[in-house]
C-alpha cells in the first residue's frame, strides 16, 4: 500500500505559478479557482486522495509555500525495530 501523505499550502506565499502541478507524480494538485490569496493569486490545493508525501511539489516550489506531511506509520524517523 502506498504511503499516505498530505500537503498544507501557505496562501501567504503561494503565487499560483503551477510549477508543482505537472511535477506531482500522483497528479493530485490543481489550482483552486474558488480562492483568492491576499496578493490576488489562485493558490494550489490538493484535489483528492492519492498524495504520498513524496515532497516533489515542495522541491520545485519557488516560494517555499508547501509543507509536506506523511503518515508516521509508514515512514519511521529512527529505526525503532519492532519485536518480532
Amino acid at each position: 500500500m502506498p504511503a499516505k501523505g498530505w500537503i498544507e499550502v501557505n496562501e501567504k506565499y503561494c503565487k499560483g505559478c503551477e510549477l508543482c502541478i505537472p511535477a506531482c507524480p500522483q497528479d493530485v494538485l490543481a489550482i483552486d479557482q474558488q480562492t483568492i490569496t491576499s496578493k490576488g493569486y489562485h493558490p494550489v490545493n490538493l484535489t483528492g486522495p492519492g498524495c504520498t508525501g513524496c515532497a516533489i511539489c515542495a522541491v520545485v516550489c519557488p516560494d517555499a509555500a508547501l509543507t509536506v506531511y506523511r503518515e508516521a506509520k509508514v515512514k519511521k524517523t529512527q529505526s525503532v525495530a519492532s519485536p518480532a
Binding site: 503565487k15 510549477l19 515532497a55 515542495a58 516560494d63 506523511r70
Partner: peptide, 28 residues
C-alpha cells in the same frame, strides 16, 4: 502526532513573501 513532517519552509528564510514573479526560479 502520528504525522511525519517531510518538508517545511527552511528557518533561514524570513517570513516575508518574495517580490519575484510567479514561477521565477530565483525563489528556488
Amino acid at each position: 502526532n502520528n504525522a511525519t513532517l517531510v518538508y517545511e519552509r527552511p528557518e533561514s528564510l524570513t517570513e516575508m513573501p518574495t517580490f519575484y514573479c510567479p514561477g521565477c526560479t530565483h525563489g528556488t
